[in-house]
Nucleic acid binder design. Sequence first.
DNA 1: GTCCGAATATAGCCTATGCTACACATCCTG
DNA 2: CAGGATGTGTAGCATAGGCTATATTCGGAC
Lengths: 150, 150
Amino acid sequence: MPEKQPAPSSHDMPQEPAQADRFCRARQARSATLLEDYAELIADLLASGGEARTVDVARRMGVAHATAVKTIARLKREGLATALPYRGVFLTAAGHALADRVRARHRLVVELLVAVGVPVEDAEADAEGIEHHVSDSTLAAFAGFLQGRK
Amino acid sequence: MPEKQPAPSSHDMPQEPAQADRFCRARQARSATLLEDYAELIADLLASGGEARTVDVARRMGVAHATAVKTIARLKREGLATALPYRGVFLTAAGHALADRVRARHRLVVELLVAVGVPVEDAEADAEGIEHHVSDSTLAAFAGFLQGRK
DNA sequence: GTCCGAATATAGCCTATGCTACACATCCTG
DNA sequence: CAGGATGTGTAGCATAGGCTATATTCGGAC
């Protein structure tokens, strides 16, 4: 048995278990993404208009309303939201807490991007995807960096 | 008909179509993520070991080998890879091009994160998720920022 | 050359996330 | 207060991306 030779490594690669970990974490972040986005959006709608209608949520997410209904059902299942039939959607305490965390993260990511020279519009758009993959450590570094250049 | 009043806006919200666009783009990026990651990993394996075995791909992605087989089938379907049964996996020209783009993006993201103070380990981990959401505009800004502080 | 273990592939199942089409409620208008 | 527009919910379908369990094939040891 060739005893797993480390390969002719003409080119560095990360250690295998560390790499698998990274991908697993990225996958997990991806699956949390949707609920986070919905929670944030619903919180924004509640704050700005007083109510969150499924049709508004759907329009703003850019999906069919049936899709929004299903995702809201999942939010309810996970204890993040409540809704009575034909009334709007509301967030539980947990839902609000999640939305607050996500929003803070989003703002910081946008600020950081802008600080390094990304146009505001692009920063907003990219932040929508990036925010879900920013670890606490990275977030802290962002805050420190922004602080330092004020 | 109340003519869609802009809502008591106690709190700013993005324009609705722009926001939907952002979410759509984020969703699209998310669905491209997997293929990009696989292409990059396979390219790395080919470069460092000379061959990419499905078992290695699976181990490094942190998934069951059956999952890797399925995703590789999708790569083939999309014209990014080729594979003969029981031989390794190879990338087409398109696959290599994709891998190169992804790799360049990955490196730049890591560099940027490190430059603003993120520990290398965390930068590597977060970049795995972030890289798929960085637009060309943002990428260019990153490059400019790094250039400027050299 | 045969046989066994490792690698590979297939099959079948599950959940998440989209969609369209259809059914039912609500509410505003006249 | 009747009726239609609009909002809401349900049903059924598709694909992506996980998994486990079960073949198959390959390749090296003997």
